[in-house]
Each structure stands twice: as C-alpha cells, then as structure tokens.
Nucleic acid binder design. Structure first.
Lengths: 341, 341
DNA sequence: TTGTAGGCGTTATCAG
DNA sequence: CTGATAACGCCTACAA
C-alpha cells in the first residue's frame, strides 16, 4: 500500500500527531523535530490520503462547475479562467456540463455533494428561488449569468444590457435606420438582457422599432445564418443586423455574402463577446468585448471567500463591464474616412 | 450534520451492514428488508459520504484530465466528449490545464493522487518514457495525441499523417504546383505528424518541395496570418497554403484578402480539424475533419477499462480516422463546375 | 438473511 | 512541546 502518516511517524521517531502538526503547520513543534519529520516525509515520498483528510476536515480542496452546454469558445474561456484561479489557490476543479434544466442541475449538484467545497453554476435559464429550496446543505454557490436572485446567492454577470445598449447606439450614430436584432436562446438571461439593451437604445434615440426586426436565434452560427436570410426578404430591408453573439454574427456574414449583399455597405453586422476569431472575419467583426475568463476567475474568488466564511456573508452581486470593439463590419471605418476627406 | 448510514439503519430498524448491502447491491437481502431500507434512505435523503466510501474502497469515481492549454474550440470539444462519456458511466471529471512541460505535468499528477481513478493526459510534447518513471503508483493513464510510447501506456491519437497526406494529395490532384505548409507548434506531436503527411504526399506524387514552403506556426490564428503574408512575398508565389489547423487557416484567409489575392483563384487554402466555424468562412474552408469529442469519449472508455483491470491489461493503441471535407477554399467546387460545363 | 466489529488514514482533543 | 486516542462514515469479513 501507499505510505501513510504512520510510516512517517515511525521513520522520524515521533507520533502521528506530531507529524500531522508539522505537515499542517498546526500547533507548536521544536525546530529539530520539524526537520526530522520533514526529512522522513520527503524520503518516503509521503502524500496525505485525501479521502482520509477530507473525512475528518470535511473539506475537499475542490470546486465544482456546472455548465449548460459546452459548445464554442465561450465555455472554454470560462473554464480556463476558473481553472487558472483555482490552481493558484491550490484548488481542484470538477466540471459537469449539459445541464439545461432545473432537474439536471439539482441532480448534478446532488452528485457533487461531498466532493466539492463550493459550486459555480452557469445556467442562464435557472430559477434561483427554486434552487435554494433543494440545495444540499449550506454549500457555497455562485451563480454566473443568471437572472435576478439577488440576496439568495452570490451572483456574477456580464453587463449585457449596457453592452447591447452601447452597440445599438453606435449603429444609430452611424446613421443606420432599420436595425434588426438576432436574439439569443429563449429564456436565456444573457439573451434577454441583450435584447433589452437593444430595445432601450432604440427607444432612447426615438429610432424605429419593429417586432419583425427581432429575429429568433439560439447562439449558434446556423441561427444567425437563417436570420440573415430572413431579413434579406424584408422590405424595406434592415440596414443593420446586431446579433446577440459572435457565432450568430459569423453565420449572418456568410448568409449575406451568399445573398450578394455587401457588409457594411448594404447591411452593417455586429456581434457580442469578441471571441478571438472575430477580428479575422471578412469584414473584421465589430462586437462587444467581454472578459469571459475574468468572469471565471471572479467566480473562483467569490467561492473561496464564501468557503472561508462558511457561506455566511453578505451576498456579492457583481457585473463585469463590457467594451465596444469597433472594426469594419459596421462601417465605422468608412464613416471616419468620409469625415476626413 | 448530514444524515449518515447509521441514521438510515436506525430509521429502518436494521444494522448499518444491512443498509450498506441494500444500497450497494452486495450480499443477499430479503425483499421486505430492501423495501424498508430504501424507503428510509429516501425519506432521509441519504447520500453516502464520498470521502468515507473512498477511504474504504480506495476508489473515487472520478477521472482526471490534464491539458496543455485551454485555447480555442479544440479543447472544449475534447472536454465535452470526456465529460459526456464520464457522466454516462457515473464518473466525475476533474480538469487541470496549462501543463506544457514535464515538470508541470508530474506536479499536477501528484496533486491528483488519490483524487482520481485514472488520468487522461494530452500533451503533444510529452516524453512518455520519462513519465512512467515518476508516476504515482499504478494509476491508469491514457495518453492523448502523444508521440510514441507504445507499450508503456494506453495511447489514443488522431490519424494526423493520413489526413495531411490525403489533403496534400487532393491539392495536387487539383493541379496545384507549389503547395506551402504552415506548421503547428514546434515539438508538438500532432504538428509533426501532419507535416510528415504533407511531405510524404509531395514525395509520393513527385511534386516539388522546398524548405521555404514549410512555414513556422503555432496553431493560433495570428501565426497563420503571418505565414500567409510571408508566402505573398515569395516568387514564384505558392499557389496553395495548407495550414496545420483551422485557426491558422482562418488567419491566412484574412491575410490573403488584405493582400488582394483571391482564394482559391490565386491561392488555395486548407485547414485541419473542421471546427464548427470552418464552413462559415469566406470561402468556406476545405479541411480535414477530426472527431475531437470522440477522442475524449474514447479516452474515458479506455480509462474505465484500465480501472476495472487495475491497469494490468494489454495496452491500447488506437488511431482515430480523419476525413477530407471539401468546401470552396481549394477550388474543388470550381473544378467540378468546369468539368460539368 | 442479518448483525458485530475492525479498519481505512487523518485530524483534533486531551492529557502529560 | 509531544503522545495517546477518539472521532469521521463507510465497507466487509466473520459470526450468528
């Protein structure tokens, strides 16, 4: 079997209690004792048994992450941020994805019980109030990109509304008159906040708004592709298409090209997220930048805080800022050139 | 505290041994007993303490995944495949990324000791022989996309060489005479196998090959972008650019467009991986499809097999096939049209 | 078919 | 400062 604390104790000539104290820095020990214990531990390549430790301390040094789906760069970025922050804090990360409804989430949460010290849940369709009910014990939880639920949980999110508002205002400033919007998945909090920002900006500027200009979408390329085909059939045709994420904007670009329309000449196109590939599109995609990895890192920090406080603390409610990234797909470059000449 | 097996035993009116037998399906139990125990367990919402269970069984029901870096869709796809397969088998997944050299990998492996029943390691730069030396115990390990090491570990990989060979042959068949290649990261096994397939196909067809046509790259868009700029300055200019992955091909498309060259008219472009976005490029990208999620799923199956066998089994060495995906960036569509007319 | 009891490897609480 | 020893919650011979 593996080497245990007993073996170290025997080798060092002390009791297991002393070895434990040395290795955990708990309690006082004579320097000489410490040296001998450490030497023995090193020579035997002792690694504490995590299960045993976890059994007595009821801590696991691992955090859980629940994700809705694992498609595209968005989620890999979140995980990257989480993983990095966790690693720095000496924590492990167990991920579990494809949880799209309440039942799947509670099931996954149940399965994680005892394995993690806290959980980050990303579920833009989640009903938070319901969640609190059947949550295993006082497990620290941080919600990512969820609707409301302030007070119940720590909640981290993106300034979706502000970003969408800014982008829409930008399009209006560029002289676009008929701005269409491709929505994200129905019932998704991110999606709805972006839609709301779009509407607010139109309203704010007294720009025209039509129901038919709010097209269905679900965050994947294909839905942007289809939405673009639909606006091409409209008359008058929208002169701008703001997509609720970059993936759909990329799909839209392809469709408009096929339809023989020029971007941004005939139709301006904008996205949301600023995934790395956005700048390489043709034309380079104007979009709203979001620090996705930063969101993940914040989630870890928030969780670790809650773990320390045993989850009895003031709830955190943080919204990460977004930033307009002006490239060529909306004609800002052309506009600027026009002004100069 | 949480409810333990003792509470269930008391509530059901049996001993903990009987409860354990019922809940684990070990040993015989009277149907009536089983019913009462299950009822009690359900009513108390009993969930076994994983630490305690793990302490006695020395199994954790979780698998580890070590990844080099977490950029782009490639890794999110791998994780997706792993997560799904693991979930189906009732296993959890702990991920750890950013391990690029041997030291980081062994450190991460050490940290996972006792937390996982097996580990999948993706490290195209790994020296497998060295790894075996300082591996904690008989931990089942499966290597993904690593060089050699047959016999030492279970190894899963992609048919990089075959895919690159087929693509290069395709370009030659299309009449391309000067085919350049953008390499992947140096020292990366995938990258080198793809390069070797490219070379072999040129050689096989007695096509021209030049050192300057093998350009440096590192799998990210920017390096493809730069490589394309370099070939534009060559004379004679290559009439095809095969990139070791799609991300670089996308960067190359952007650069060629900026340079005023037509694709595929002036230069054919091809990628590798077939990430979802490839088909939405302009022109849609011809590439080599790889079932990345399938690779992850296979890794899980392989690991679970090894876990069952306590790692004493014939080593698996599997290579996943690739498939040519012909779109427009290489002119095959035009060629076909030409034939028809 | 069921119960008793020992042990898994640590940590933590006491005495010394 | 150090050493016994009792938990922690579960599984599994071994007995009954």
């Amino acid at each position: 079997m593996a080497v245990t604390i007993k073996d170290v104790a025997r080798a060092a000539g002390f009791s297991v209690a002393t070895v434990s104290r040395v290795l955990n820095g708990s309690g006082p020990v004579k320097p000489e004792t410490e040296r001998r214990v450490r030497d023995a531990a090193r020579q035997l390549r002792f690694t504490p048994n995590v299960a045993a430790r976890s059994l007595t301390t009821s801590r696991t040094s691992t955090l859980g992450v629940l994700l809705p789906d694992l498609h595209g760069e968005f989620f890999s970025e979140v995980i990257r941020g989480i993983d990095q922050a966790a690693q720095e804090a000496g924590y492990h990360v167990v991920v579990s994805s494809s949880h799209n409804d309440h039942a799947e989430i509670t099931a996954a949460l149940d399965a994680m019980r005892g394995r993690v010290d806290g959980v980050a849940i990303m579920s833009p369709t989640l009903d938070a109030a319901q969640l609190r009910a059947d949550l295993p014990s006082a497990l620290p939880v941080v919600l990512l990109n969820c609707a409301d639920a302030r007070g119940e949980f720590d909640v981290l999110g993106i300034d979706n509304r502000g970003g969408a508002f800014a982008m829409t205002r930008h399009l209006i400033a560029l002289g676009r008159q008929r701005i269409a919007f491709v929505c994200g998945a129905r019932g998704n909090a991110d999606a709805e906040a972006r839609l709301s920002g779009y509407r607010a900006a139109l309203c704010d500027a007294r720009a025209e708004r039509r129901d038919e200009w709010e097209l269905e979408g679900n965050f994947v390329q294909q839905s942007g592709y289809e939405a673009a085909h639909r606006i091409m059939a409209m008359s008058p045709r929208p002169d701008a298409l703001f997509c609720a994420n970059d993936a759909m904007a990329i799909g839209a670009l392809a469709a408009l090209r096929e339809g023989g329309l020029r971007v941004p000449g005939d139709v301006a196109v904008a996205g949301f997220d600023d995934i790395p590939i956005a700048r390489y599109m043709h034309p380079p995609l104007t979009t709203v930048r979001v620090d996705i990895a930063g969101l993940g890192a914040s989630a870890v920090r928030t969780l670790l805080h809650a773990v320390g406080r045993k989850n009895a603390h003031e709830r955190v409610h943080e919204t990460l800022p977004t930033e307009l990234v002006i490239r060529d797909s909306c004609g800002a470059a052309q506009l600027r050139a026009g002004r100069v000449s």
